[in-house]
Simulated assay, not measured.
Amino acid sequence: MVTSPFSLALNEPTQIVEHAVVNRNYYCNLLNLPTKPIAGLIPLNQVQNNGRNLNNVYIDVLGVLRGCGTPRTINTATGETFQVLHVEIFDVTAFSLSISLWDSDNILRASTWTPRYTVLFFTDVKLEWSDFEKAFRAKCTNRTVVTENPPCRETEFLLNYAKDAPIETFDIVDKMLTTLPEANQIQEIMSVNQIQNRVDSILQGITVDKQFSALVYAYITNMDLDGINKSTFAKW
């Protein structure tokens, strides 16, 4: 972790001149040192489960790159032009968290990031609810610092997990299907209320086993295929 008590602020007219140094790699390695303690991060599943309490709050997250979108150009009403890039990260607790990059330097750096092999530590990203996606997502601001592959045990653990972790939608579904028992082997019968109670206990960390199968005798009252109903995300 960076422990220097000093900071450097650059204004618009500032000119940066490259310093002639023999061993540049020694200083480049400093870019991998996190600017805040890794221990202060919030697991991605906590972002999904407790997002309402974290809405519009600055948080620190650590995850492996799941994928990068394509930079988009946005024109504002005042005539200004900005670029934005959406990236997704994942960890052992959640499949994905979408983060938007607005800084040109970070967008340029993102072109060198590789899914599964780049661990990113975001400090002070702002968590917001997206009405369009019906989910919580994070946004980089002028407070945000992005550190690539910080040298710590958490990075090694995530890289090892990411080797076989499913990052494509079909891979995730296929992995879930391979762990499901045969239909004729399911013996437990549960009501809708019992299922909701079981899911609540999983979200609260009371139940260790996060996957279960049951027979449900019920009729469908609503099909929220577009994911408009927020309770669908809260329960399932």
Score class of each variant (00 low, 15 high):
S4Y: 11
S4C: 15
P5E: 01
L8P: 03
E12I: 15
T14R: 02
E18T: 12
E18C: 06
V21M: 06
V22P: 00
N25E: 15
Y26W: 05
N32G: 05
L33Q: 03
T35W: 11
A39R: 09
L44V: 04
L44R: 02
N45Y: 05
Q46C: 07
N50F: 14
G51C: 09
N53C: 01
N55S: 07
N56I: 05
N56R: 14
V57I: 08
V57W: 01
Y58E: 13
Y58M: 11
I59P: 02
L62A: 03
G63L: 15
C68K: 14
G69I: 07
G69P: 04
G69W: 09
T70W: 03
T70C: 08
I74R: 14
I74A: 08
N75H: 08
N75W: 05
T76F: 13
F82N: 10
D91M: 00
T93Y: 11
A94L: 08
F95P: 02
F95S: 15
S98H: 06
I99L: 15
S100Q: 06
S104V: 10
S104L: 14
D105T: 01
S111N: 05
T114L: 13
P115T: 01
Y117E: 13
Y117I: 03
F122H: 01
T123I: 04
T123K: 04
V125I: 15
V125S: 11
E128I: 08
W129G: 00
K134T: 05
K134M: 15
F136A: 00
R137D: 03
K139E: 11
C140D: 10
T144A: 12
E148R: 00
P151G: 02
C152F: 08
C152Q: 04
E154Y: 06
T155P: 03
E156L: 07
L158D: 04
L158S: 01
Y161K: 09
A165M: 13
P166W: 08
E168L: 12
F170R: 08
V173I: 15
M176G: 01
M176R: 13
T179D: 06
L180E: 09
A183K: 07
Q185N: 01
I186C: 00
E188F: 02
M190K: 10
M190Y: 06
M190Q: 07
S191Q: 08
N193F: 05
Q194I: 04
I195V: 02
R198E: 14
R198A: 15
I206G: 00
I206R: 06
D209S: 11
L215D: 05
V216W: 12
V216I: 15
Y219L: 05
Y219K: 03
I220L: 14
D224M: 09
L225M: 07
I228E: 13
N229M: 13
K230G: 00
K235D: 11
W236T: 03
